[in-house]
Structures are given as structure tokens and as C-alpha cells.
């Protein structure tokens, strides 16, 4: 685990996440500690409502943290200006895009916004990045389609491609595989893994697909609100981190197969 210091992207210490409503603070999860490394695919898993999305949105500075430290590339997330963060971190959120009247190519080009001039004109390099993402995510056939014509899976691929176009060291994805069938889930996650390994990016995503995550991810954060174990999947199995993930009256974790079984 002794990772080279230069390789650390996110460094999270004693993080508490939740919502501040007026003067009250609604704590969702606390005591979150982990480091992400360049070139690794990390999954955040946990039961519904435990705060997976909240954590991801906090890491992406979409919403403020309650307390603790979040550093990105050695610099506190609080000190990042929007334009600086845009060059270091890209997002794929669950919320629908505002205008589905855009073509895929137009949407992808917006990913270059942090680097373009005040009018947003694309340079040759920008066009290359867009073309590269189109090829990686296999979007050539649909690049001139409008977003409202796409299926959920296609749109998801487009949104991931947009994050690739932004060309950041870190990509955060909130439930990138929901609404997809098993084949497309695995396809997307395998693609994310190969991108992380090939381009040395840190990719973090939230998911409900624990069994697939165990097989594919380099690291997993098991969010339970208190312990929040973070390690390689096989280590987590040894630590029995998955055993207490769900209430024991319905499903149990079969460590041998790395999968959940329904209790008779």
C-alpha cells in the first residue's frame, strides 16, 4: 500500500459528508479516509442511501463537505477555482443534461471548454481530442445524432466520452451503469478500467454492482457510514468487509465465489 506520494490524486482524511440545511447539518456519513492512485479504477459501494452519490459529489465539489480534508494533487479542494478544477477533474453525473437538442459532436466539443478561448472556438488539438474520444467510446455512427434520439446506454457512453474529452487526471462517475443490461455494464466498466490503466487516469465511480466491481476494480471503498473500509477487492474479502454490508436476514456474502447469495 506504500504508494509513491506523487501518484496520489485524491487524499481524503476524516471526511464527513451530508447536507447543510440553514443552521442544521444533516450528517450522512463520516470517518471517510482513502487515497486514490493514478492509473487505478476505484468503486464506491454501499447500501441505498448510505451516501455514495453524496461522497462523489463532495469529491467533485458539486456540494460542500461538512468537515475533514479533501486534497486533490496535494492541494485542498477548497482552494481550487472552478477553471483550475475543470482542468484536473471531470464529472459524469446522474442528472439529465439540460438540453437534449444538442448533437453528440456538439456535446463532446463542450468538454474542451476549460481550454478554449473566450468564444469557445476549437483548436486543432481540441478537435483531435474529440475525435479520439469518439473512437475510444465507439461513437462514430451516432456522432451527428441529437441526444434525444439516443438510448440510455448510448447517452451514458457519450457522457463518459465527454469526460474523456475534458482530459483530466481524475474522472468521477456517479452510477455510470444504471439502466444498462449486464453486457453493457461490464463493457463500460472494462472500458473504464482500460482507460485508467492505459492513460494513467484516476477513475472513481459509485455503483450497486458489487459483484462486478469485485472482479474489475483495483480498489473498492465500502461505504457503511462508520468504518468505510478501503482496499483491494481480495483484501476486503479477507477482512470480511462485504459480510456486514447488507442486513444479514436477506442476503449473505459468499467469500469463496465473491458473490452474494439469498438466504433461504
Amino acid at each position: 500500500m506504500a504508494a509513491n506520494h506523487d501518484n496520489i490524486t485524491f487524499s481524503v482524511r476524516d471526511l464527513a459528508i451530508g447536507y447543510s440545511l440553514k443552521k442544521e447539518k444533516a450528517l450522512i456519513a463520516s470517518n471517510i479516509n482513502f487515497d486514490t492512485i493514478k492509473g487505478e479504477l476505484t468503486a464506491i459501494i454501499g447500501i441505498n442511501g448510505i451516501g455514495k452519490s453524496t461522497l462523489l459529489r463532495t469529491l467533485g465539489k458539486v456540494q460542500p463537505k461538512l468537515s475533514g480534508v479533501v486534497e486533490l494533487n496535494g492541494k485542498s479542494l477548497d482552494n481550487y477555482k472552478p477553471i483550475e478544477l475543470a482542468a484536473d477533474l471531470s464529472l459524469v453525473l446522474t442528472e439529465p443534461i439540460a438540453s437534449k437538442n444538442m448533437t453528440v459532436a456538439e456535446l463532446l466539443a463542450l468538454g474542451r471548454s476549460p481550454y478554449t478561448n473566450w468564444l469557445g472556438a476549437l483548436s486543432k488539438e481540441d478537435v483531435l481530442k474529440v475525435e479520439d474520444a469518439i473512437q475510444q467510446m465507439e461513437l462514430a455512427k451516432i456522432q451527428h445524432k441529437k441526444c434525444y434520439e439516443l438510448s440510455d446506454g448510448q447517452l451514458q457512453r457519450v457522457m463518459i466520452a465527454r469526460a474523456l474529452v475534458q482530459d483530466t487526471a481524475v474522472i468521477l462517475l456517479d452510477e455510470p451503469t444504471t439502466h444498462l443490461d449486464l453486457y453493457h455494464k461490464v463493457q463500460i466498466l472494462k472500458l473504464l478500467k482500460s482507460i485508467a490503466h492505459r492513460t494513467n487516469k484516476t477513475i472513481v465511480f459509485t455503483t450497486h454492482e458489487i459483484e462486478i466491481a469485485i472482479q474489475i476494480c483495483d480498489k473498492i471503498l465500502v461505504l457503511d457510514g462508520t468504518v468505510n473500509a478501503f482496499d483491494k477487492p481480495n483484501k476486503l474479502i479477507e477482512q470480511k468487509a462485504f459480510d456486514t454490508l447488507f442486513p444479514s436476514d436477506t442476503v449473505f456474502f459468499d467469500a469463496q465465489n465473491g458473490s452474494f447469495k439469498i438466504k433461504e
Partner: peptide, 24 residues
Amino acid sequence: ILSIKSLNAMLLGENYARSLGVNM
């Protein structure tokens, strides 16, 4: 005209626009 770039980013929605460096 000064807002053209931010307007284009806003087509993705507020959170995406911010993540693209737009000062909302």
C-alpha cells in the same frame, strides 16, 4: 456575446457547467 461560452456550457446543466470551469 461575453456570455456565449458559458451559455453553451449551461446547455449541459448547472453542475456540468461549473465542472467545465464556468463561474456560474
